[in-house]
Computed example of a mutant assay.
Amino acid sequence: MNRIQHTIGLVVSGALTIETRPRYCLRAARQVVEHANGWEERRFFRELDWGKYRTAENIEQAPDTPWARSIEHAFIERGWTVPVEQARAGDLVFSRVPEDQGHVGPIGLGPDGRLWVLENAEVRRGQHLRGALNWVPLDEWPGITTVGRLPDAWVFQSAFERAHGFTAEFEGGYVNHPADPGGETNLGVTRRVWERWCKSQGHKVKAVRSLTLADVLPLYEAWYWQPLAATLPWPLSAAVYDLYVNHGPGNAKRMLAQAQQARPNASPLVQALALTDVRERFYRSIVAARPSQQVFMKGWLRRVHAQREWLKANAEGEEMPSKVFIRDTNGKNVEWDGKPTVYGGVTLKRYPDGAVQLERVAPPAPDPKDIPATPLK
């Protein structure tokens, strides 16, 4: 997912507020990049080390305030530029219009599929949003001098980040439920796990109640994503990651094996959905064995149902293949399990992308001894 594009969409729709006062184009652009990456205010400048690239005019007139032209100079000196013909959603575009201090705006895809620029400007052009914000087609943006290319890590969300986005919705904040065997927990990380992580990294143990997402993401990626999920195709990787977090490595591996046995030749999405079925049965077995856990069942099932819908919505265009039914010896239609089989003289085989191949089986050649001799006429 393009995080810059997503953030621009929030601004255009009015769901996110950025600087709307005129003459603050750089602040507006900075806020887009920082929101997209979950950064604190002004981190964009620190990441660029902007002080090294201040223009003489910037130093003379406003030594502590970055100008768009100085940020443009930083991109040029770092080699973070591309020709305007190669611009893409997530880039920053610079110009000297309307003034020599510079002008800047982030690029995104517009409603017509072309590249557009979100800008803070005194003039009104393109689609006026509110305050000083405009949404302007790139080819109508005047005086372009540089297209700055942000690092991919600032623009595109990794598979791990996408997967954790779902998991984080259900891990919640600080809890210390007396019926939860995990004990004191924050952002899904138990006190025991947190202390073990800190010891492995040589860090001072921060109080569990005070943990932030920035504290725990490295732990999640190293201990819960990399061992197994990182080796699998999307979105199966996301489904396995959530299991790894919620049930531990042993259970995650066993449930993955069961899902792949049930759908051996299916696509990653179909296997991921099969995994949610295995997971639901696992939850029910927990309650059957320990009735005291019934208090958590509603939340567990809500997570499973939400994951099914999330997987289908985030499968990167993969379509759910139609179910294939075979009539059994009793005349009943049963869903085919995906394993290669022969039915009614036709071979059925499902490929990894979910496609089903039907191939007629040639009848066996008759034995020559069984062919009656044809009398000569």
Rank of each mutant, 00 (worst) to 15 (best):
Y224T: 05
R279Q: 05
A214T: 11
V295K: 10
P264D: 02
N176A: 11
G354H: 09
S285Q: 14
W39T: 06
D49F: 10
P249E: 08
W39Y: 07
G338A: 11
Q357P: 00
R263E: 01
A313I: 05
Y343G: 00
D337M: 06
N37D: 04
V104I: 08
D215W: 09
P268G: 07
N246Q: 13
Q127S: 14
K349Y: 10
H103C: 02
R308N: 10
Q258F: 09
N333V: 01
F75G: 11
R21L: 13
L232K: 04
G248R: 03
G172L: 04
P98K: 01
V346G: 03
D367N: 15
Q258V: 04
I18H: 01
W154T: 05
Y283L: 10
Y24N: 15
R290C: 01
K377V: 11
P340W: 12
N314K: 02
D64R: 08
L118V: 08
W234F: 09
V324Y: 02
E57C: 11
Q5E: 07
V240N: 12
P235F: 10
R303A: 00
L213Q: 11
T347W: 01
V12F: 01
I59T: 15
R43W: 01
E85F: 11
N333K: 05
R360Y: 04
L311N: 10
E60F: 15
R191K: 15
R54W: 15
M297G: 03
V346N: 06
E318M: 12
V295Y: 07
G165E: 07
V295W: 11
Q293C: 03
A229L: 07
E57M: 14
S237L: 01
A74K: 04
P111S: 09
E41Q: 06
N314T: 06
P181I: 12
A68Q: 07
G188K: 00
A159C: 06
P372V: 11
T167S: 15
T347E: 07
G299S: 09
K377I: 11
G331T: 06
R21A: 14
S210V: 11
V147I: 14
